Amino acid sequence: MRATPLTSIASLAAVALLATGCGQGLLGGGDGGDTAKTNEPIVLGMLIPQSGSEAAIGPYMSNAAQLAVDEINAKGGVLGRKLQLKTADDACDAQSAAAGANKLVTEGVDVSVGGYCSGATLPTLPIFGKANIPMIIPAANSQELVDQKLKHVFLINGTGTQQAAAAEKWMTKQGAKSVALMHDNTSYSKDIALRTQTLLDAPGGADTALIEAVTPKESDYSANITNVLAKKPDFVYWTGYFQEGGLIARQLRQAGYKGSIMVGDGSVSPKLVEIAGPEAAEGVYATMTQTPDTLEGAEGWIEAYKKKFGAEPGPYSNQAYDAVRLAAEAVGKAGGTDGAKVIAALEAIDGFQMFSGPLKFTPEHTLSNGGFQILVVKDGKIILQDSLK
């Protein structure tokens, strides 16, 4: 879903929060059935990478989440209670994520609003589920998360299926004839590659030259590059994260590859350009949902973020901001933090205004439209290339 033209996203957020205060009301007033917790904060937990190769993404998400918390609290909180954000490091690693999820459960979080790496998010699903904690996942989007069919899990980023469709549509539009798909064997990355392969190999699509799996966190992918170039593709699609994506883009160009390079949403970060180098990164495409730079009418929100944190908002900051706002909306509608009631409130959401547009979940608890667009690196910056409308 594309963002609707707005004079100020920050103003919209405030209006939306006030407008949803029906019944007992979202902002102030009433104990909403949580009488034992009337004076306690509503605690939101956020698992994000704060260490490891994806650590650059963590601050974007936690800062934006805190911005939403502060804005809601300034207007009276939810049901007369303040919001509180607690973060934990998942290091984009399954074991670390499980430990972080258990830590947040022990600390008494009411709703989870984190999840960046799908492979790290997957093992947290049963942990939060057993504790009856609803999960609003802002970034992680492997179809495997959806396939668990868990009632407490909601995704507000486009799915791997939707991303694969966007990738195939763009490559076809560009006249690709032979595509090399590269992934890192993680749930998220492999899922997108395989789904893209299925679409490419359908009648009328480009041929899949090969699927090449790499070992993450290495510094030399020359053997993988050799395998790819031997198939003479005119398009290479990397579906993993930016650390490897930057190296692969650079080593492809160093090896003489002249065709198109595209990366998945896990590689959309200024770090991609930094690692690849400006020359190798130039012209690299990316499949991605909305980023602050591509949102229409987001100037006010961007300025509010910059004023508070002294930095530009980066990828997944807008999704993290919306995750907090959506959690507040659901708790307000539920009249408290009872997990089952919050889940029911999330399922009943219809038209809640987010950056990506009015929200209504599908029966699978995903967005009805993934909102993927094509970005491109130009003059060292990642900008919008095509909205794929």
Rank of each mutant, 00 (worst) to 15 (best):
2 R>M: 13
4 T>Y: 15
5 P>S: 02
11 S>Y: 11
13 A>P: 00
14 A>V: 10
19 A>K: 09
23 G>Y: 09
25 G>S: 01
25 G>N: 01
26 L>V: 13
28 G>C: 12
29 G>F: 13
34 D>I: 02
38 T>C: 14
44 L>E: 00
47 L>R: 14
49 P>K: 00
51 S>D: 00
54 E>R: 12
57 I>H: 13
84 Q>D: 02
86 K>V: 12
88 A>H: 13
92 C>P: 12
93 D>L: 01
96 S>R: 10
97 A>K: 10
100 G>F: 06
117 C>H: 03
120 A>I: 07
121 T>Y: 06
122 L>E: 03
122 L>H: 08
133 I>T: 06
137 I>P: 14
138 P>N: 00
140 A>T: 09
140 A>W: 06
141 N>C: 12
145 L>D: 02
146 V>A: 01
147 D>F: 11
150 L>T: 13
152 H>I: 01
153 V>D: 02
155 L>K: 09
159 T>L: 06
172 T>C: 07
173 K>F: 10
175 G>P: 02
182 M>L: 14
189 S>Q: 01
189 S>C: 03
190 K>R: 12
195 R>T: 00
196 T>A: 14
204 G>C: 09
206 A>F: 05
207 D>F: 08
208 T>V: 15
212 E>I: 01
214 V>F: 04
215 T>N: 04
218 E>C: 06
223 A>L: 06
229 L>V: 09
230 A>T: 11
231 K>C: 06
233 P>T: 08
245 G>L: 00
253 R>W: 13
258 K>E: 15
261 I>F: 10
262 M>P: 07
265 D>T: 04
269 S>V: 05
272 L>M: 11
278 P>W: 09
280 A>W: 10
284 V>T: 08
285 Y>S: 00
293 D>H: 11
295 L>H: 06
297 G>Y: 13
300 G>C: 05
323 A>N: 03
323 A>I: 06
325 R>M: 12
325 R>Y: 11
327 A>N: 03
331 V>W: 11
334 A>G: 09
342 V>P: 07
346 L>N: 10
347 E>W: 03
347 E>Y: 08
355 F>K: 03
356 S>A: 14
356 S>G: 13
365 H>A: 01
366 T>L: 04
368 S>I: 09
369 N>E: 15
377 V>C: 10
385 Q>P: 08
